[in-house]
C-alpha cells in the first residue's frame, strides 16, 4: 500500500473515531493527505504540512506535530483543516473519501 493510500485510510478511521468530518471541499482534504504521505516517505512520520519548521527531521522526532498532532488529540484542533468539528463553517457531511 502506498503512503498516500495508508494516510487516506488513517484519515478516515481517525475522523470516524474522533467524530470529526472532512472539509466540504474534498480537494483540500486530499491535498493535506498528500502532504502527510510525502512527509512520511521522506522523514518517516506524517508531520503536519501546514507548519513551517526549522528542521523537519528534528520535529518528526519531537512528535508534537506528527499527525494526529497534540492539539488534535487534546482539543480536536486541526488548523490544517483535515479534521473539522461538524459545526465548523467549512465542515462537509462525511468522514469517508471513497464513493
Amino acid at each position: 500500500m502506498s503512503s498516500f493510500d495508508a494516510m487516506k485510510k488513517f484519515a478516515q478511521s481517525y475522523a470516524k473515531m474522533s467524530q470529526t468530518v472532512f472539509c466540504e471541499d474534498l480537494s483540500i482534504t486530499l491535498t493535506v493527505i498528500e502532504g502527510l504521505a510525502r512527509h512520511k516517505d521522506e522523514y518517516g512520520a506524517p508531520l503536519c504540512p501546514c507548519r513551517h519548521y526549522q528542521s523537519k527531521k528534528t520535529e518528526v522526532m519531537a512528535a508534537y506535530w506528527n499527525c494526529p498532532c497534540v492539539p488534535m488529540r487534546e482539543r480536536k484542533e486541526c488548523h490544517c483543516m483535515l479534521f473539522l468539528q461538524p459545526d465548523n463553517e467549512f465542515a462537509g457531511q462525511t468522514c469517508t473519501l471513497d464513493p
Binding site: C23, S27, I28, T29, V32, E34, R38, C50, H52
Partner: peptide, 12 residues
Amino acid sequence: DFWAPWCGPCRM
C-alpha cells in the same frame, strides 16, 4: 502570503 505546496488552507 507564506504558503506551502501541500497545505490545504493555503489552497483555500
